[in-house]
Write a protein that binds this DNA or RNA. Structure first.
Lengths: 246, 246
DNA sequence: CGCTTGATTGATTTGAGTCAATCCCAGTGG
DNA sequence: CCACTGGGATTGACTCAAATCAATCAAGCG
């Protein structure tokens, strides 16, 4: 297979994936693309509820979800977990390991999940040479920071209704961004996980889903969500931050 | 003034500052140090409650607090603010602008404050050449992400007591890290700001300070804090995350 | 077809918020 | 030098959103 054909194949394989933002666009040459792609380890498949890393584990590099879903979380001594983020297909996680070269939180699958990894050392080496790649890495990190900030606003200032509405809107816009329906989708996470992400009780999640349904805003059947009235849903969120897609 | 003398003077001027982590240590040559220092804009002085930037403002680069204190925050339409972080002397802020080259949150002073700025473009150019500097930038960003994660755990899972105790421990450890007393210090922020950071009401902050004082854990007089029993204070925090200094 | 695990629903409790006065200090001006 | 004043801080009384406790209910599975 020629160099060009190889690169093309790789391009296709990364097309719908966030990591592609790191390598494919903005004038990188075919040569450069395949250079980075060489380092990306191809998909690994995992069962639901499998731990990918935990605090103290060596930081290897970034992870990109290809299918399924991953949650990252911290825990209290008493066992309660705070979910920091849900990572859907095409999204990146693992950035928590950068500070000390070891992870600070847990990451585990929520479903049958496959993902790629890109070794940080190799990425950094390429960054020295490719200014555009460097910019993409900054943007990726900046995005993580901004998402975390939005999550802090949600946890610190929003009511339970607002939190759940914000959550649905975020998932919706992220599915939309990846080319899926923004109004009809399957949630990859359990009610318990939603509650832990939003900082509320599972029972509250159930009750609010019911309430939203009674208001005709959504139709919810187990993990299947259909948004019936996007405007009403948006109206539930009173904060001034435009909700940000991950 | 010779090259070496110049660099030495700069080194002293940045010595007690987080930005120094970006340039001074880890085998950068004197030449390289002065190269970066040339770009750092020297201190600017601001009055208390002055806005430094707001959402939409162009991202210029990082800011390093030299004296006083800065808060970064988001707001809801209804006006409530969620404080994302307090930035004490020697700490960095402004990273929220990296994703879109424009800021996403507000930053304003809490006191008479001076700070330096380092233009992002220049920093990036140097990053291309200096691998050690690049690593420092990654660590800085990773640190911000980890702090945000701890804040999410606090906001999502901790009780009001735990939040306030965690807050005091964080401030204490940060003062200690900068060479100040970890048990006796002045808070640069108002009760209102503490409340907004912790996601609780001002009145609750007052009541809990009183309660901590009655338990003999701390002595609080207006903004002056004396920690009398560090073990008891630590005991109030039940989470498994070691509290992380910014 | 029972069993397990997650989701829902209802009854009750409570931690923290809200509302409403003071209090107290820092800064101002007479 | 001291009274005045305004905004932050404190304190108390009351309320309420959401948690907790406690049953079911439903669905996937061996």
């Amino acid at each position: 297979m020629s160099q060009v054909q190889l690169a093309k194949q790789l391009r296709v394989s990364c097309e719908s994936c966030s990591l592609s933002e790191l390598c494919l666009p903005r004038g990188l040459t075919v040569q450069e693309i395949s250079q980075l792609d060489d380092y990306i380890e191809r998909p690994r498949k995992l069962d639901p509820n499998t731990q990918i890393y935990q605090p103290g584990d060596k930081f290897f590099g970034f992870y990109a979800v290809r299918s399924g879903g991953v949650k990252t979380y911290l825990t209290k001594k008493t066992g309660e977990q705070q979910i920091l983020g849900f990572h859907l297909p095409g999204e990146i996680f693992g950035l928590d390991g950068m500070e000390h070269n070891s992870h600070r939180c847990y990451a585990s699958t929520m479903d049958n999940t496959s993902y790629c990894t890109i070794p940080f050392e190799k990425l950094d080496e390429l960054c020295a040479e490719l200014p555009d790649l460097r910019i993409q890495v900054y943007k990726l990190l900046g995005h993580e920071i901004n998402c975390d900030h939005s999550h802090q606003l949600l946890l610190g200032q929003q009511t339970a209704h607002e939190r759940l509405a914000t959550f649905l809107l975020s998932i919706s816009s992220r599915f939309k961004h990846r080319g899926f329906s923004p109004t009809s989708f399957m949630l990859p996470m359990s009610r318990h996980d939603i509650a832990c992400y939003l900082g509320i009780a599972v029972e509250t999640v159930s009750r609010l889903f019911k309430s939203f349904q009674q208001q005709g805003i959504v139709k919810i059947n187990r993990k299947q969500v259909d948004i019936l009235n996007m405007d009403l849903l948006t109206g539930l969120v009173a904060n001034c931050e435009e909700s940000d897609s991950l």
